[in-house]
């Protein structure tokens, strides 16, 4: 996949010739691209790349914050997570549960909504605004709002359920349903992202393709299946990858609603990392969880990219 350059034009060719002619000022500025890159690279290397390796190192030590000596302990922290940590495997299970509900629902629903929002209907600007509004609301505010709405005693939702003659629900108190509620709230909060990406993809599909399909007698379903979906493969890949990465990163939407409970039903890896590191100050195991998340995300991202690339020749 090459990125097309901005195209040839005569003046540029002229300038290129001037460059080749060995303009003195240019020769002296060989260092300039590196100078331009310097500020970015410093921050990038020190605060994004280096911490990954530092995290790996911390995960191999017995890192006591109060002790200046940090003895190297090999894989002991990982051993602790796998065989000693009371909650690690629960967190893995719960994270997978979150991903397997969150990702497919949000991808399918995002596409469906994008198809609806791509129609020309009265008041569309308003409806789009309504859809996008929750997306800019602070996750902490979202968490508070839904704690209020879902409160089993005084919440709005149970009131309207009782109006319909239904029994009041325990909502976030019942571990059976908490994860589903978290996913529902997450959809409310962030589905707009997927819709926007799909909408952009839809608008880039040339109308002629639909015309051609129509002439061939394809019905709406066939047109969707044979034109829309294949044309959206780029957006689809992007959304799926982003959703997977995002689901591993998910913290605020879960922590602010449930704090990881009840009965650890929503204690995903990220929440577990936070508690291990910053509630209980077990930095070694916390760094080890970080390393594990990093490896899984990298592997999954590469797998998804490879899968899509195999399926559609890029």
């Amino acid at each position: 996949m090459t990125i097309p350059d901005s195209g040839e034009n005569p003046r540029m060719a002229l300038a290129a010739a001037a460059r080749k002619g060995g303009m003195a000022w240019f020769a002296g500025k060989k260092a300039s691209p590196y100078l331009f890159l310097l500020p970015f690279m410093i921050i990038y290397v020190v605060l994004i790349l280096y911490p990954i390796f530092q995290g790996l190192y911390v995960s191999l030590t017995d890192w006591d914050m109060m002790n200046p000596v940090k003895p190297f302990v090999g894989l002991k922290n990982f051993e602790y997570l796998f065989f000693g940590d009371p909650l690690f495997w629960n967190s893995v299970k719960v994270t997978l549960q979150y991903i397997f509900t969150n990702v497919p629902i949000k991808v399918v629903l995002g596409l469906a909504l994008a198809l609806i929002f791509n129609q020309k209907l009265p008041g569309m600007a308003f409806h789009r605004g309504a859809l996008f509004l929750p997306f800019v609301i602070n996750i902490a505010a979202v968490g508070i709002l839904f704690q209020w709405i879902l409160d089993p005693e005084v919440g709005l939702l149970n009131y309207y359920l009782s109006m319909l003659g239904l029994p009041p629900q325990k909502w976030l108190v019942d571990p059976t349903w908490t994860m589903d509620l978290v996913v529902l709230v997450t959809i409310w909060w962030s589905i707009a992202f997927n819709v926007i990406v799909f909408l952009a993809g839809l608008q880039d599909i040339p109308e002629e393709l639909y015309e051609a399909a129509r002439i061939d007698g394809a019905n709406a379903w066939h047109r969707f299946w044979n034109v829309t979906l294949p044309c959206l493969r780029g957006s689809m890949m992007f959304v799926v990858v982003m959703q997977i990465i995002g689901s591993f990163q998910a913290f605020g939407n879960i922590y602010m609603l449930t704090g990881g409970g009840p009965n650890n039903a929503t204690n995903v890896l990220m929440v577990h990392l936070y508690k291990t590191g910053f509630f209980y100050f077990q930095m070694g195991p916390a760094a080890a969880i970080g390393v594990i998340i990093f490896i899984i995300v990298m592997a999954l991202t590469i797998a998804v990219l490879a899968m899509f690339r195999k399926q559609v020749e890029y």
């Binding site: 690279m41 911490p51 990954i52 990392l273 970080g290």
Partner: peptide, 26 residues
């Protein structure tokens, strides 16, 4: 140039959260 660009692209795939423990310590 190509190497640096790929390095930047790799950054797109790193969930920042996994570095928080070491960032905190740094």
């Amino acid at each position: 140039k190509k190497g640096i660009f790929i390095l930047v692209l790799v950054g797109l795939m790193v969930p920042a959260e996994v570095t928080f423990v070491s960032l905190f310590l740094m």
